[in-house]
Amino acid sequence: MTIRGLRRLSKTCVGLGLAAAALVLPQMPAQAAGDLLVAPTRIILDGQRGTEIILNNIGAETATYRISMELRRMTAEGRLTDVSAEEANELERAAKEMIRYAPRRVTLPPNQPQAIRLGVRAPKDLPDGEYRVHLLFRAVPKARSVVDQVQQEDGFSIALTPIYGVTIPVIIRQGELKATAAIANARIEQGEEGPAFVFDLSRTGNRSTYGEIRVKKQGQDEPLLMVRGVAVYPEINQRKVSLQVPAEVVAQLKGPLSIEYYEPRNIGGGLITKTDLVLR
């Protein structure tokens, strides 16, 4: 078995009750207060009524975490941008209203995992479609005591505290939903961080697509470039996908290539779409 295989084996294993999860959650090196682990990284509820998410304190100190529902929209560049409650459309408001979760605030000692239960109560007359929120897990910073604050005799001091966290998408599918994707317009662009392999990924249908991109030389099995977790959400019909090209791969990205878009392995790994092209 390869090292990579071993790594996969050591992934968070949850099952046979939470006690088992506590046993096998990997011990991360102790870091600053507020460090966190979240699993899984994506939730799709297609008929299921609910699920559980594991939150673990991987910092060195006891920390309080808040869990909140956020809205994000995908841009044409594939970035997710924050959507405030006032800007929310009907679909986004409906998604927020049907999701229940608890606890919403939890204090955890180091290496203490906690299950967050999430349930969905879809209204009877809910129109078919894909509903989505992003669940935000973040640490609440400790209040600074006045004594701790550095008093400057002259000039001023600045204390900027980052609150950092993780968002994972929670997707609810209602009804029979379909989507197809297509790839076009592959090219090399020179970006600030070096050359990037860029193409347009379009989507049609009433749900999102999500999966793995593999860029291969035609006739070869080993991909030159690979990235997982490439999504096109229903709010957009087309996005740009940009893959950084390592220096040693630049010369090989020429001639007949194929770009393949696969579903994630855990739901079958089927081919969504494939395009052959010649890059000069």
Binding site: R8, K11, T12, C13, V14, G15, L16, A20, M28, Q31, A32, G34, D35, L36, L37, V38, A39, P40, T41, R42, I54, I58, G59, P162, Y164, G165, V166, I168
Partner: peptide, 12 residues
């Protein structure tokens, strides 16, 4: 039964 979950960590 065991679910293998993908995990994500963020540390400062």
């Amino acid at each position: 039964r065991a679910n293998i979950l993908e995990e994500l960590t963020v540390t400062k």
